[in-house]
Design a protein around this nucleic acid. Structure first.
Length: 198
DNA sequence: AGTAGCGGCCTATTTACGTCA
DNA sequence: CGTGACGTAAATAGGCCGCTA
């Protein structure tokens, strides 16, 4: 069972997004409230009934109190999440027991945590695509300039000679001149591009 | 094979709480 | 110190999907 690592206290918390490292999630930003810890712990305590639908027996239900997980609870949940993004019922039960929370709360926490993780990954993918778009735009401009230069060469006096010296690079399919390799645009280093505007 | 019931997950949304100007 | 705006995270609601009897 991989719910509660024995040395969890030394683990760094990371978002499991491939290719990126990120700062730990909100566990640490609660640092200023050391004094509130005990109060919150009391509020979060597992109700004795062990039932999700507590109360409502008589009269109007009291307003929903939203608990805040303690730092320790959050840390253990994060540790568990790092090992597995989903829990089977036994793991859920064990974790709930250990943290003195209801299994439903564990379930909800994992759902929200998965959603947060996905959101973060989506945001990073969005950033990546933005950068890619910028790179493609830049390359597009460069190619347009290259086309203009080639057109200018074609209408020049030694058109025939110049045109005959143009070759197509078989690898990158880029038009270049045999005489002056520097005419070819510098190869793009960052992104292997197949699509290209003509 | 079709289906109803169930449980788990996902997504969108609501809501309570904490922080800061 | 009180207050409103805002961000964050816990909780809810509803839908989808896979499993099973």
């Amino acid at each position: 069972m991989a719910i509660l690592p024995e040395n969890y206290s030394n683990l760094d918390l990371t978002i499991s997004v491939p290719g990126f490292s990120s700062s730990p999630p909100s566990v640490s930003d609660e640092g200023s409230g050391g004094g509130r810890e005990q109060l919150k712990l009391d509020m979060n305590r597992l109700p004795s009934s062990e039932d999700d639908e507590e109360l409502s027996l008589g009269g109007s239900a009291p307003p929903r109190k939203k608990l805040r997980l303690t730092r320790e609870q959050s840390r253990l949940l994060e540790d568990s999440f790092r090992q597995n993004h989903t829990l089977n019922p036994k793991q859920k039960e064990a974790l709930a027991k250990h943290l003195m929370l209801r299994p439903r709360q564990i379930e909800v926490w994992f759902q929200n945590r998965r959603a947060r993780s996905k959101l973060k990954q989506t945001e990073m993918e969005c950033e990546y695509l933005k950068r890619w778009f910028g790179s493609l735009t830049e390359q597009n401009h460069r190619l347009h300039r290259e086309v203009e230069e080639l057109r200018a060469m074609k209408v020049g006096p030694s058109t025939a000679a110049t045109a005959s010296s143009l070759t197509m690079c078989p690898r990158c399919e880029r038009v270049t001149t045999a005489a002056s390799p520097s005419m070819a645009a510098p190869a793009k280093k960052t992104l292997p591009l197949k699509e290209r505007e003509h």
